[in-house]
Nucleic acid binder design. Structure first.
Length: 256
DNA sequence: ATGGCTACTCCTAGTAGA
């Protein structure tokens, strides 16, 4: 199977590009983030026309995650167990073809020391607790999405400029290492252990994409059984080019 | 030249993204 993750920055704005990309890449499972739409308004019919089923967990304007798949999903979980009824829509879990899929849109974090930064760290603590309580690293499991953390200096175009900034701070990186420490493998780094310049997000401003001034903040993390099978991981930079792109590129893992 | 953007909303200004 191929599984992809993509922060589309609005499913409605990105729908033409998403449909063309699905036709070209034909991934089996796609985890989307920042759909920015309530579930009633999600473009289910258009995606169905290409043979994809939709599971959506969204809200108006902000956040929102969704999972597209050829096979149906079962055992669906929306939000974290300690989220309230009005929680930000940031997590969606399902099982597809025997693989547990955890689709995540982590908080941005605002500025270091801000309430939103504290919320991000707390949210990661709750995510880690959810993993421990609800899953087993011995199962076939993928945790992927926009984690809003660049794990180390190889993942940042200018480590000096970004040192201590949000997405690069040591407490955030400790949150990423806690996921890996639970038993997950960073699929891209498994295949490209040293390479720099591999980014998944580039600012819309300042010609950042053209200059490859980016960050690697979108990740596919695999349980050991899937890491063993994963044969390739691709950052689909083509999707950051052209008219009206998302500011994120998709990441695709092949798991034969 | 060191900045330049995009998408959302009871839309035309303010907020958020990262």
């Amino acid at each position: 199977m191929t599984i992809a993750t993509w922060n589309v920055n609005s499913i409605r704005t990105r729908l033409p590009r998403l449909l063309a990309w699905l036709e070209r890449r034909r991934p089996d499972i796609v985890c989307l983030q920042e759909t920015k739409v309530e579930d009633e308004r999600f473009p289910v019919a258009e995606l169905g026309g290409l043979g994809y089923r939709t599971l959506a967990c969204g809200e108006k304007t902000y956040n929102g995650v969704a999972i597209l798949s050829r096979s149906p999903g079962t055992d669906i979980v929306r939000c974290l167990p300690d989220d309230g009824a009005d929680a930000q829509r940031r997590i969606l879990v399902t099982t597809i073809d025997g693989v547990r899929i955890v689709d995540v849109y982590a908080p941005n974090g605002g500025e270091l020391g801000s309430p939103r930064y504290a919320y991000k760290l707390e949210w990661y603590r709750r995510l880690r607790a959810f993993l421990a309580a609800a899953f087993d690293p011995g199962q076939d499991l993928v945790l992927c999405g926009d984690l809003n953390i660049a794990p180390d200096e190889r993942d940042v175009w200018d480590p000096e400029q970004w040192r201590g900034q949000v997405m690069c701070s040591e407490p955030e990186r400790e949150c990423f290492r806690a996921l890996v420490g639970w038993g997950l493998t960073d699929a891209l780094r498994m295949h490209q252990p040293e390479a720099g310049g591999l980014y998944t997000w580039w600012d819309y401003r300042a010609g950042a994409f053209r200059r490859n001034r980016g960050l690697r903040i979108d990740h596919i993390l695999l349980s050991p059984s899937l890491a063993k099978r994963c044969s390739a991981v691709l950052i689909d930079r083509e999707e950051r080019k052209g008219a009206r792109p998302s500011d994120h590129a998709p990441v695709i893992a092949a798991i034969p």
